[in-house]
Amino acid sequence: MPHWSRWMVRMAMIHLCLALLLGIMVSFRPLTMRYPVVLSASPVYYHLLMVGWATQLIFGVAHWMFPRYTREQPRGDERWMAGIFFSLNGGLLLRTVAEPMLAQSGLSLWAWLLGFSALLQWLAGIGFILAIWKRVKEK
C-alpha cells in the first residue's frame, strides 16, 4: 500500500471518530443549551463524515488500487498526492474550527480562514480528479 494511501486511510478514521464525537455533542441537549456554538457545528459534523472520512477513504484506496498510470510511474507523481493530503485535511480542519467560530463571533479573521479552507478543499478535490482521471481506463 503506497505511503500516502496509508496516511489517507489513517486520517479518514480519525475524521470518522471526530465526526461521531461531534454528533454526540450536537445532540446532547444540556451541552447545546449551555454552549450554542456547538449547534452551529452541525454542518461540520456532516462534512467530517462525508469529506474527511468517505471521500478521503475513496482517495486513499483509489490511489492504491486503480489501474496503473504507466509502467514506470504506476501511480503518477507521489508528491502530488502529498499536496492533496495536506490540502484536504488542512482545509477541513480549518473549517471545523472557523465555521462555528464565525457563527459565534462574526470576527472577520474567521471569515478569512473559512474562505481559505474552502480554497484548500477545492484544490484538493480538483487535484485528485487530475491525478486519477487517466487511471480510470479499461484494462
Binding site: 473549517r95 465555521e99 464565525l102 474567521w110 471569515a111 478569512w112 473559512l114 474562505g115 479552507s117 474552502a118 480554497l119 478543499q121 477545492w122
Partner: peptide
Amino acid sequence: GAGLLMAKGSF
C-alpha cells in the same frame, strides 16, 4: 461547496 463556504465568509 467551496462557493457556499466562500459565501458564508461573505466572499
